[in-house]
Amino acid sequence: MINISKLNKEFESRVRLGIMSVLMVNDWVDFSEMKSLLEITDGNMASHSNALEKASYIEVKKEFVGKKPKTSYRVTQSGRIAFTEHLDALEKLIGR
């Protein structure tokens, strides 16, 4: 029997999978860079990052560089644990 209960619903979206994958291997990534890497719209980036922030899986830093606003993201410790568990569950699901 295949047990999918260990898969995390927060990571079902390909955009959220992408955000988490990028943040697992980088310290801080800014909004524009993330949007470009994932080839998504501003709205997609904003809505999915908000959901991950609400779940406490990512941290969002807003600051001004000169007179321009800059938003950056990084994975939290609980996000790192949850994503690793999700990946482990996926590996078990495909039989690794």
Rank of each mutant, 00 (worst) to 15 (best):
G66T: 01
V29C: 12
L37F: 09
I58D: 11
K54A: 12
P69S: 08
S47T: 04
T71G: 07
L23I: 05
E53P: 11
S21V: 02
R80Q: 06
R74F: 09
S72N: 14
D27A: 03
V65L: 12
G18W: 04
K61F: 12
S56V: 00
F31V: 05
V75H: 00
M24C: 08
G79A: 07
I40K: 13
L23V: 06
D30K: 12
V75W: 01
V75C: 07
A55M: 11
Q77T: 10
A46F: 06
I58F: 10
T41F: 06
I40N: 02
I58R: 14
I81N: 01
V25R: 03
K62F: 12
V29E: 09
A89I: 08
L87R: 09
H48N: 15
F83A: 09
G66P: 00
W28C: 00
K61H: 13
K70E: 13
T71I: 14
K70M: 13
G43S: 08
E85D: 12
V60K: 15
S32Q: 14
S78I: 03
H48M: 01
K68P: 02
V25S: 04
S36G: 10
G66Y: 02
V65E: 09
F83Y: 15
P69F: 11
S21L: 07
M45I: 04
N26P: 02
F31E: 14
E53M: 15
A55G: 03
S21H: 05
E63W: 09
N50L: 09
D30C: 12
F31Q: 12
Y57T: 03
P69T: 01
E33M: 05
D88T: 05
V75Q: 06
A82F: 07
A46V: 03
T84C: 02
R80F: 00
L38T: 08
D42H: 06
M45E: 09
T41A: 13
I19Q: 06
R74N: 10
D30M: 10
A89E: 08
S56N: 15
D42N: 08
G43V: 02
W28H: 08
V60N: 11
K61Q: 13
G66F: 04
L38P: 03
S78F: 01
V29H: 11
E59S: 15
T76Y: 04
S78P: 03
K70I: 12
S21E: 11
N26I: 00
R80M: 03
T84K: 01
L23M: 07
H48D: 02
E39Q: 14
E53L: 14
V60M: 13
E33D: 14
A55Q: 06
V60Y: 07
K68F: 07
I40Y: 03
A89C: 06
S49F: 01
P69K: 08
D42P: 03
K70H: 09
K61M: 12
E39H: 09
L52A: 07
A51G: 05
D27I: 04
D42G: 05
S21Y: 04
E33T: 10
D27Q: 09
A89Y: 05
E53K: 15
E53F: 15
S36F: 11
W28A: 07
